[in-house]
């Protein structure tokens, strides 16, 4: 039993079987990568985990509780945070406000009507958010509008916002897509640091093999909606089935 258990999950869009019988178990405190060619169903699977999609069949258990039928914010409150392919942050707000929102969400839950209090007077929130900004190396950017930052900084902020909630499982959807090599390496270093310093499980969907082999302890290869193999990075590298899935039958 892992912290996340996916059993027999299937999802069909009209005539397309996007996922068929996916079984997957992510062990606690590990880094688990899910790779696969385009159209393999990686994003569909991820969307089934966070409540954006509801699978047609099967079950998804997080820490012994089913996540099916729950809305994204409820699943998040259970302890699953998601980082998006293109950074989803509050562009109109300052970096500091961006960081304060998840801290509020952690303390107050999905809704609380605190309409009269001054938000900067909430010392515990401000301190936690400030500490997180220091950890993320962006304390000097705290007054900037989040939308005006570089792609790499936005990604860093988004990861920081997810960590501020102290999630038990961090899901990353192609976190280095469209990034320059230097930014990619920075992100890898950041994720390594998070893995070393925190009590957290990371599941990562990625195209970039450099990222996958730098981070993952366990890899699942997905092709045409079903898991092909699940193994350690060393064994995956030379696996004939993986080569076949990526390069076609002729190879």
């Amino acid at each position: 039993m892992g912290i996340l258990d996916v059993k027999d999950v299937g999802k069909r869009f009209g005539g397309l079987q996007a996922l068929g019988n996916v079984n997957l178990s992510v062990a606690e405190n590990s880094v688990h990568a899910i790779i696969g060619p385009n159209g393999a169903g990686k994003s569909t699977l991820l969307n089934c985990l966070v409540g954006k999609l509801v699978p047609d069949t099967g079950s998804v258990m997080f820490d012994g509780q089913s996540v099916l039928g729950r809305s994204p914010h409820e699943i998040n409150q259970m302890g699953i945070s998601r980082v998006f392919q293109t950074p989803e942050i509050f562009g109109d707000l300052t970096v500091m406000e961006n960081m304060m929102i998840p801290v509020f969400a952690k303390r107050d839950g999905a809704f609380r009507m605190h309409a009269i209090e001054n938000m900067m007077a909430e010392r515990d929130i401000v301190e936690t958010a400030e500490k997180m900004l220091v950890d993320m190396n962006m304390a000097e950017k705290r007054h900037m509008h989040a939308a005006s930052m570089s792609r790499g900084d936005k990604r860093r902020l988004e990861i920081g916002m997810c960590l501020a909630q102290e999630p038990r499982l961090l899901l990353l959807d192609e976190p280095t897509a469209g990034m320059a090599r230097a930014d990619t390496n920075n992100t890898i270093d950041l994720l390594k640091q998070i893995k070393d310093e925190r009590d957290i499980t990371i599941a990562i969907i990625e195209h970039d093999m450099h990222v996958v082999f730098s981070l993952a302890e366990r890899i699942t290869v997905l092709a045409q909606g079903t898991p092909l193999v699940e193994d350690t990075p060393e064994n995956i590298k030379g696996h004939p089935k993986v080569r076949e899935a990526y390069l076609g039958e002729a190879a």
Binding site: V50, S71, P72, H73, N76, Q77, S81, R82, F84, E88, I89, F90, G91, D92, L93, I101, P102, F104, A105, K106, G109, A110, F111, M161, Q165
Partner: peptide, 11 residues
């Protein structure tokens, strides 16, 4: 600003 992020921040 961003309802998606708000949802995935547990709010």
């Amino acid at each position: 600003s961003n309802q998606t992020r708000l949802n995935y921040t547990g709010l």
